[in-house]
């Protein structure tokens, strides 16, 4: 399941939905990404997340298909927000369920690594010194490259 939305999400509700959907899974691995102040000096006040409507959903759906192809999984839920976000807000949620934890852990990391380099989202940081577009990081390219 893929959701690209402005609204916040509730991790407990997402977890409950996965548990209710199927009783053959033995493991659920969940990841949530948050807005943080990585300047270290309290300068960042929030983020504006832009995306490419249509392509975003398409890329996320392809990542979901590829994860199912690589691992024996029960379900995948990906939620990614866009719009104005404040410090501490939730940005992204990925949950993977499977019979065993190994597949769920690996698939969750795979989804996040590929999402970060392929899904068309762009972050703009709001700081006390003005607004700045976040530049892509080489370590994210490297993380995606290992898959």
């Amino acid at each position: 399941m893929i959701l690209v939305q402005k609204e916040d999400f509730n991790v407990a509700e997402e977890y409950a939905a996965i548990r209710d959907s199927d009783h053959t899974e033995g493991a659920i691995v969940m990841f949530s990404g948050l807005v943080r102040d990585f300047s270290g000096d309290g300068l960042i006040t929030g983020l504006e997340l832009e995306h490419y409507p249509g392509m975003t959903e398409k890329v996320l759906a392809e990542i979901e298909i590829e994860a199912h192809r690589r691992w024996d999984l029960n379900s995948i839920r990906i939620i990614h927000r866009y719009g104005a976000l404040a410090l501490g807000d939730q940005i992204v949620f990925v949950a993977v369920s499977s019979a065993h934890r190994g597949a769920a852990f690996e698939a969750n990391q795979f989804i996040m690594d590929i999402l970060k380099t392929q899904a068309p989202f762009w972050k703009k940081e709001m700081t006390r010194n003005g607004d700045f577009w976040v530049e892509a990081k080489q370590k994210d390219e490297k993380a995606a490259g290992r898959w």
Partner: peptide, 8 residues
Amino acid sequence: FFLPVTGG
């Protein structure tokens, strides 16, 4: 056209 993506 766009710059490298920075979501997640």
